[in-house]
């Protein structure tokens, strides 16, 4: 199956998030309390290295496996949608200590409560879909 490589990349990502404790509620709490460098170090170094990668993609130094230019999709613009949407997400992130990636990791760890969070997140997505045309950008 041609998608099997993404399974392996997903497994690696799940292991990285587990082993670095990014999936721990406590690490997220500690981050928002500014009492540890751990999470800032992870996000900061990931962004720094990715920035170099992005430049290499943009200049065509690194191409994809078929030799094509690698492009990054442009994010939707709009101050309200990104700031308000981001803040609402931030409330949920800090409350359960997990963003979408870690939610899936924690299901793998066997935390049943996280399945409730995931179902609610799917419901939240549905609510956004219903309201999407009426919300300000």
């Amino acid at each position: 199956m041609k998608n099997s490589k993404f399974l392996i990349i997903g497994i690696l990502f799940g292991i990285i998030l587990s082993k670095s404790e990014v999936v721990s509620w406590y690490r997220i709490y500690e981050m928002f309390k500014f009492q540890s460098f751990h999470m800032y170090g992870i996000i900061g170094s990931a962004v720094m290295i990715s920035m170099v990668l992005m430049q290499l993609f943009k200049r065509g130094v690194i191409k994809d496996f078929q030799g094509n230019q690698i492009t990054i999709k442009e994010k939707k613009k709009g101050f309200i949608r990104t700031f308000v949407g981001g803040s609402i997400f931030g409330l949920g992130w800090a409350l359960v200590g997990a963003c979408p990636g870690p939610l899936f990791v924690l299901i793998g760890h066997g935390f049943i409560a996280i399945i409730i969070v995931l179902i609610a997140a799917i419901l939240g997505t549905f609510i956004y879909g219903v309201l999407s045309k009426k919300l300000p950008n």
Partner: peptide, 26 residues
């Protein structure tokens, strides 16, 4: 608590069109 947090995560990430991986990193 679990449901409220989940709703915020689902609604917020789609309104903002991305989460930690899509926005903060990519």
């Amino acid at each position: 608590i679990l449901v409220a947090a989940g709703l915020c995560i689902g609604f917020g990430t789609r309104y903002a069109s991305g989460c930690t991986s899509g926005h903060a990193i990519t």
